[in-house]
Amino acid sequence: MVLAAGDYAREVCKRPAWIRGIDHRIEAQYPGARDLTKSSSTAIAAEKAGVGKGGVDVAEVYAPFTHQELIVLDALKLPAGAEVNPSGGALAAHPIMSAGLIRMGEVASRIHAGEARRGVAHATSGPCLQQNLVCVLEGA
C-alpha cells in the first residue's frame, strides 16, 4: 500500500481513499480476564475512529473465525446497510501478518473504484481478539 498526503495524493490518484480516523486498543493478555462475548477494545477504537459519524457502505473485518465476525460487528456498531467482507475476508485467505492491511486495501480499492463512499476496515492481533484496530476511509 502506498500512503501519501494532501495534494500529492490528489495528483497521483483519481479517487484517493482518505483516512478520516484510525485508532487501536489493547486488552488483557489472558482470555480468562476478559468477557469473550464482547470486544471492548474494538468498541473504543471504533468510537475514537469515528465509525458512527456517517453512513458505512462497506466494512472489511479481520475475523479468522466466524463467531469473531459477529463479535467485531457488534462492537463496531455499523449502521444498517453496510456490506460486510465482500472480499471473502480472512475466512477466504489468511496470511496472518498481512490480513489486517488487506482489509484496509480492500476498502480503499472499493473507494478508488467509486463503488463505495465511506468504509470501515478492522484488524486484530493476539489470542481471542486481544488487540484491535479500526480505520475509517472516505472518498472525496
Binding site: 486498543r25 489493547i26 488483557a28 486481544q130
Partner: peptide, 19 residues
C-alpha cells in the same frame, strides 16, 4: 512471540493504544 501482547498488562496498557 509478539511480547507486546504479553506485556500489555504489566505496562498498564489495557484499553489504550499499544504498539
Amino acid at each position: 512471540m509478539m511480547p507486546e501482547l504479553y506485556l500489555a498488562d504489566a505496562l498498564g496498557a489495557l484499553g489504550k493504544p499499544m504498539m
